[in-house]
């Protein structure tokens, strides 16, 4: 059943949201965002299977490319923050707070 795949996608997306909300480690937050992107991909591909139409596959490819770009930039930012603060806590990174 295609709807089972959509249930799994919803569950994974919610787990990603919970990871972003509840954790303070930068890496865990980052990987939770990746988890949400993957859940969206699963939704695209399963709806694409439902309609027997491959546009969803192309969209999943685009999402993967965006995720790769995001990973490169976010890891560079994490390295810089770790160099400046020596910590991985998201609460410490408050340089923009007035």
């Amino acid at each position: 059943m295609v709807s089972h795949y959509l249930f799994l996608s919803i569950i994974l997306f919610c787990l990603g949201i919970l990871g972003v909300v509840s954790r303070r480690n930068v890496f865990i937050v980052f990987m939770s965002i990746e988890l949400m992107l993957n859940a969206a991909n699963l939704g695209f591909v399963s709806l694409s299977r439902l309609h027997v139409n491959m546009d969803g596959h192309v969209l999943a490819l685009m999402v993967m490319a965006v995720a790769a770009a995001e990973a490169a930039l976010a890891l560079a930012v994490i390295i810089l923050l770790h160099k400046h603060k020596g910590n991985l806590d998201t609460n410490i990174f408050s340089l923009l707070k007035g």
Partner: peptide
């Protein structure tokens, strides 16, 4: 799961790009 949904290209790219490249970078 992508393979079960007969998305063969996405299956390969998920393994190569996501589980391979992005996760090894992380």
């Amino acid at each position: 799961l992508y393979a079960l949904l007969s998305a063969k290209l996405i299956f390969a790219i998920q393994l190569i790009v996501y589980a391979g490249a992005i996760m090894s970078l992380i």
